[in-house]
Amino acid sequence: MRQLEMEICENVTSKKASMEGLRKFLGALPFLGPFLFLIILFYLVPVTLTFVMSLTSMDYVLEWKFVGLENYLRFFQDSGVKTVVLNTVKYVFFTLIINVGFGFLLAIATSYFIRNENIRLLFQTIWMLPRMTPPVVYALLWLWFLDPTEAGMLNSFLGKLFGIPAQNWILNNPMKVVIIANGLIGASLGMVVFSAAIKSIPVDYFRAANVDGASDWQIIRYVIIPFLKWPIMFMTIWQTLSLITSYEYILLITDGGPLNKSEVWSLFSYHKAFSNYEFGYGAAISMVLVLIAVLIAILMLKVFGYDAIMRRGNVDGMRGEAGDESNKNHVAV
């Protein structure tokens, strides 16, 4: 509300409210212009275009040949789609479990059990590494780790220790590899968000629990988990949203192979468009996905409410910094 006042003060009165509104909007435009321009050009236009394209048989010539709903009919009849959808469900479900479940365990371990600030930081830094590593390098590490020859890390390790013969891990277990590789990256986000939530629990709760003689397990069960319910739910939906549409790491590690065994929905659309140059069909595949994503986003807004999500921008926002110092005694009771 307050900002409104300065606005008025800097300008001599103009009576009509709508005029006033327009004037205010024009006043803000120099600040907002570039932002709005880019958002419109690279979000709004593409969403619309994706829809229109999905009604065409566009290829690399980029011609608009409208074919009605043909792409969608094809999509629902495509025999490959079943595998892809199944893969997507598997991928999202199991990656989520790692992201949220393992992230939660990491958060508890580093923020509750480890009381030495430096050791905590060391472990959290280690787990941040995959997330901060450029995707190409991260993929390289996986390719090397799982290299099918004797020289591959895992193979040589298992071979030397247990005499297990070398095998082609990626070829044999493409989905597992993809899930674990993505899971490790999401887990660090879970760790950061949940750690922040644990640190924001008022220290009195821990004191009270300690006075009552609660065990570590009881403290986790009755103090920490109730506080983390909300962030956990949030992370679950948030990650679902990002997982169903992200395919960068899969593209780099397995490229959907072998034989579509690790092909997921979004990557499928990518391949149709940029390997087969079926832009129209690719757009239709994307469009269905975008619709699902929007539904999930709306669900998220409904469940958590707009205001809560606004605040969430701060939970894992830069606020951690200041909070860190003042809150660090929270669990050190």
Partner: peptide, 18 residues
């Protein structure tokens, strides 16, 4: 807020056109 959650890679094909 919604865009913040909206993954842009889903729009790659249209972005190509733009």
């Amino acid at each position: 807020i919604i865009l913040h959650a909206f993954p842009g890679v889903a729009l790659l094909i249209a972005l190509y056109y733009v």
